[in-house]
Design a protein around this nucleic acid. Structure first.
Length: 541
RNA sequence: GCCCCGGUAGCUCAGCUGGAUAGAGCAACGGACUUCUAAUCCGUAGGCCACAGGUUCGAAUCCUGUCCGGGGUACCA
């Protein structure tokens, strides 16, 4: 039981002893450290119903409080009615040894024995991964890391479609370039993919298959898909991302899932024909409008295989299913869930993460991105220019709900001042201290007396380290990994301040050992946190 | 029209499950390297948290409305 849980329990006991209704008791660190380490507002929330001034209630609670542990040093009441708790340094000292003996400090067990599926990227192989996909990729991979850290067995999955309209046009685009090279007449498709990579693929086909290919040869699409997918996988590896499974939507046509799914909906009278198309009767389930399932051309819309795919994921028995989508899917996924529910599937373990689009700025101007028009900045370009660590940090340090402005000039320029270096530098600095210590005969395994760490900068850093488990645990609920970036920045900041104020390796052996313990623990937290973000922890910079 | 996101320092953004004095980085200005790494630290300056109402002991945070920006509302995905 954590110290917080103990405190909440004894507060609850105090409330019932006073005959006050039990409330959700929240303890949080106040902004102003003068008020202590934790504060609660229970008295304020109870005051109105009790008809008693909050400050009086707070005092009553305090007087009835059976302090659960010696770690609580002081309880105070401050206007307008907060109860504040000061935690003894001994508590934080003991955290230090926890970190040093358990290098997985902060690892939760709530996902133990559970399986999770995270579907992300899922870009069709029509072109290279762009910066827009990068946000998706980094978000999905980081969330996966956090789940794993909490004990989940995670399947990272990439879902794609090589049978639809996009891919057909891709094949036609390659074909047109092929004949163009041969100086034969060929109309470039109206919505064709204009990128130079299409010409490269056509060149490759020409080299390998000769000049005699005919119109509509399947090789055009096949070669394009193969080449582009290989590039995509390489780009992902450049970002440190690997997938456990690639699932093709074609599977669900071939194995009959889609037919079955449509039949079942039909049996429930949720499908009908109109104007040559097949419609899903979403209005019968409370939506504003019905949706087309099968176009009059005979092609299903994306909702159909998507729904079958999600049903497949449900059937595979995951405890948690996460989808990472761009904001253009905001309106689409509710239809998928709706259809699943109509078929009696449970969808409450599906979490959909919607991230807002990245706006690219170059020379202060917006770059309008379009894969089709080949007006894009690829992930590879970006990674080449600034490195994977910077790219990952840049994408994860902002909340997924924010419309991220990505200034390309700044990103390229920023290599010296990029915020990620601030974190890595703290780690490298610690490594260097430890290295220096070793050179003068200081071991990281020495006995140490933590009570020597009484400098405010030391205490502040310790308290920050103590927060790591709760930060990670909270992200498991919110699935908003930017909190790790914020936390690590604070931690690095407190370390740098400590560094400026306290010298670690000195003639004072006892103090040196204590400080070595502190910086070693800080290093572990930084490395673990950076690891969760998929960012390296360099030993020197 | 309707739906989803956002609007916080000059710029990019944290903070948003209501708390006490609203933060960081960059940009600006002024300091600190004979020391374990100055990719750092210290200091100054910078704000009607878009606007208007509401809820309450208390609002950047919750509700309503307005304005601005992005996305969706396609027989595109």
């Amino acid at each position: 039981m954590t110290i917080l849980a103990q405190l909440i329990q004894s507060l609850a006991d105090s409330l019932s002893a006073l005959g006050l209704p039990r409330r959700d008791i929240k303890l949080s660190p106040p902004n102003n450290p003068d008020f202590g380490d934790f504060a609660t507002n229970v008295a304020l929330t109870l005051a109105k119903d009790a008809g008693t001034p909050p400050i009086q209630i707070a005092n009553d609670i305090k007087d009835n409080l059976d302090i659960p542990t010696s770690f609580i040093e002081e309880v105070t009441v401050t206007p307008p009615g907060f109860l504040n708790f000061k935690i003894a340094p001994a508590y934080y000292y003991q955290i230090l040894s926890q970190i040093l003996t358990d290098k997985y400090f902060g690892r939760g067990s709530s996902g133990k024995g559970k399986k999770a599926n995270v579907e992300f990227v899922s870009a069709n192989p029509t072109g290279p991964l762009t910066v827009g996909h990068g946000r998706n990729a980094v978000l999905g991979d980081t969330v996966s890391n956090i789940l794993e850290w909490n004990g989940y067995e995670v399947t990272r999955e990439y879902y794609f479609n090589d049978a639809g309209r996009q891919m057909r046009i891709l094949g036609e685009s390659v074909e047109a370039r092929y004949f163009e090279i041969l100086k034969k007449d060929s109309a470039f498709p109206e919505d064709g993919y204009q990128g130079s990579y299409i010409k490269d693929i056509a060149q490759t086909i020409l080299k390998e298959k000769g000049e005699s290919l005919r119109t509509s040869d399947p090789i055009f699409k096949e070669q394009a898909e193969k080449t582009i997918f290989a590039d995509i996988k390489k780009s992902l590896i450049n970002l440190g991302i690997h997938f456990d499974q690639f699932t093709n939507e074609k599977t669900f046509y071939e194995n009959g899932d889609i037919d079955r799914f449509l039949e079942e909906l039909n049996a429930k009278n949720l499908i009908y024909e109109k104007e040559g198309a097949t419609w899903f009767r979403a209005t019968a389930l409370g939506k504003d409008q019905d949706r087309v399932y099968i176009k009059s051309s005979g092609e299903p819309t994306y909702r159909v295989p998507d729904t079958a795919y999600h049903r497949d994921k449900i059937n595979r028995g995951f405890d948690l299913i996460i989808d990472v989508f761009g904001s253009d899917h905001t309106d689409a996924y509710p239809d998928v869930l709706l259809a699943l529910e109509a078929l009696g599937e449970k969808t409450d373990n599906i979490r959909v993460l919607i991230y807002q689009f990245v706006t690219l700025l170059r020379s202060g101007e917006k770059v309008k991105m379009s894969t089709r028009k080949a007006n894009f900045v690829t992930m590879d370009d970006l990674v080449d220019e600034v490195g994977a660590d910077v790219v990952r940090y840049f994408f994860i340090m902002r909340g997924m709900n924010t419309h991220l402005n990505f200034d390309l000039d700044l990103a390229a320029d920023q290599s010296e001042k990029n915020p990620v270096f601030y974190l890595q530098y703290a780690h490298a600095r610690i490594c260097n201290i430890i290295k220096h210590g070793k050179a003068v005969g200081i071991s990281t395994n020495s006995e140490y007396n933590p009570t020597l760490l009484d400098n405010p900068a030391e205490i502040r850093l310790l308290k920050k380290l103590e927060q790591f488990p709760s930060v990670v645990e909270n992200i498991l609920q919110t699935l908003e990994p930017q909190a790790i970036a914020t936390y690590l920045h604070d931690t690095a900041n407190f370390f740098h301040k400590f560094y400026a104020e306290c010298r670690v390796i000195t003639d004072d052996t006892d103090l040196t050992n204590a400080r070595i313990a502190l910086v070693s623990a800080t290093r572990i937290i930084l490395a673990n946190g950076l690891g969760l973000l998929g960012i390296s922890s360099p030993e020197k910079m």
